[in-house]
Simulated scan of single mutants.
Amino acid sequence: MKVITFDRFKPGVTLETITPHLPEEVANVWRLWKAGIVRENYARADEPGVVIVFEVDSVEEAQRYVNDFPLTKKGFLEWTYVPVTAPLPIEALMDASVDVAEPYDRTR
């Protein structure tokens, strides 16, 4: 299962607050990325923070990894967790006459 997580600075925390701790934070995420646990990592475009997509068995497992992040341990961040899965079989909603056969990519 994929779990999309995103953080938000707690009140009073600024980029200047976290900057000294970023090398350790980034190294931690990089290790998880190399292990196949973190699948995607983005900077937020709407405010300071990150979006991380985990490949894990549960939200609780994602929380265990996030709770081990240096910035989380220091109490600088709060996190939101969104578990996602494959959408319902969309083909089941289509009329039988709709062509969903291979080749799927017909732009070539």
Rank of each mutant, 00 (worst) to 15 (best):
F69L: 12
K73R: 15
F54V: 06
K10L: 14
E16P: 10
A86G: 08
G75W: 11
A101P: 00
V38W: 05
L71G: 02
F69G: 05
T19V: 09
P103F: 01
E25R: 00
A101H: 02
K10A: 10
I4F: 09
K10M: 12
I18M: 00
V13I: 15
A62H: 02
E47C: 11
R39T: 14
D68S: 13
K34L: 09
E24H: 11
Y42D: 11
I90G: 02
E16I: 07
W30P: 00
V84F: 00
F76A: 06
T72M: 04
E60K: 08
E40I: 10
V82E: 04
P70A: 12
K34A: 11
G12P: 12
Y104A: 00
E91T: 09
G75Y: 08
G36D: 10
R39P: 12
L22G: 07
L88Y: 07
W79E: 06
A96K: 14
D105N: 14
R31H: 14
R64M: 05
P103Q: 01
V98G: 02
P83Y: 13
V59L: 05
R64N: 11
A62T: 10
W79M: 02
F54K: 01
W79F: 12
S58L: 08
K74T: 09
T14S: 13
E60T: 03
D95G: 03
